[in-house]
């Protein structure tokens, strides 16, 4: 049976794929495909963020007591990534390839070190803290 950590980690990998697709379309100058791929990437990321921010993080905070740092930093990094999505969309709309590639390089590093912290630390922590509630969260994730 897949755990919450497995599923969320898998989502990261899928988003990575979409990221790479959009980026190589831009690099090849195929802006039509790039806009479609980037759109799909952004939607997938936002869906993933929404689940974490609305379901997973509050559950962790409830279990750990409020005011805990780790979740706060994860939220901050989500916001930083959303700001980059915005800039990337603008660059795509303007057809500014160079700017998009500079932004996507930045997003990649931010996203990867964020994922690393989630996969290595936060998801495992969640698995231990949530216990029986994990099943309930899994259902909500499936229902999204």
């Amino acid at each position: 049976m897949s755990t919450l950590a497995d599923i969320l980690t898998h989502e990261h990998r899928r988003c990575d794929d979409l990221f790479a697709q959009a980026e190589s379309a831009v690099a090849n100058g195929d802006l039509e495909t790039a806009r479609r791929d980037f759109g799909e990437f952004e939607r997938s990321m936002n869906r993933h963020f929404d689940f974490e921010e609305q379901v997973l993080f509050p559950a962790i905070e409830t279990a750990m007591g409020p005011g805990m740092g780790p979740v706060q930093v994860m939220r901050l990094e989500h916001d930083q990534m959303r700001a980059l999505f915005c800039d990337m969309a603008l660059a795509l709309a303007a057809g500014d390839k160079q700017r998009y590639l500079g932004l996507s390089e930045t997003l990649l590093i931010l996203m990867q070190q964020h994922n690393m912290k989630e996969e290595h630390i936060l998801y495992r922590l969640a698995g231990e803290l949530l216990g029986d509630r994990e099943q309930e969260l899994l259902t909500r994730l499936g229902g999204q």
Partner: peptide, 11 residues
């Protein structure tokens, strides 16, 4: 793994 002392500072 314990949550105490866990910090996910950005940098």
């Amino acid at each position: 793994m314990s949550a105490t002392g866990l910090q996910l500072d950005q940098a």
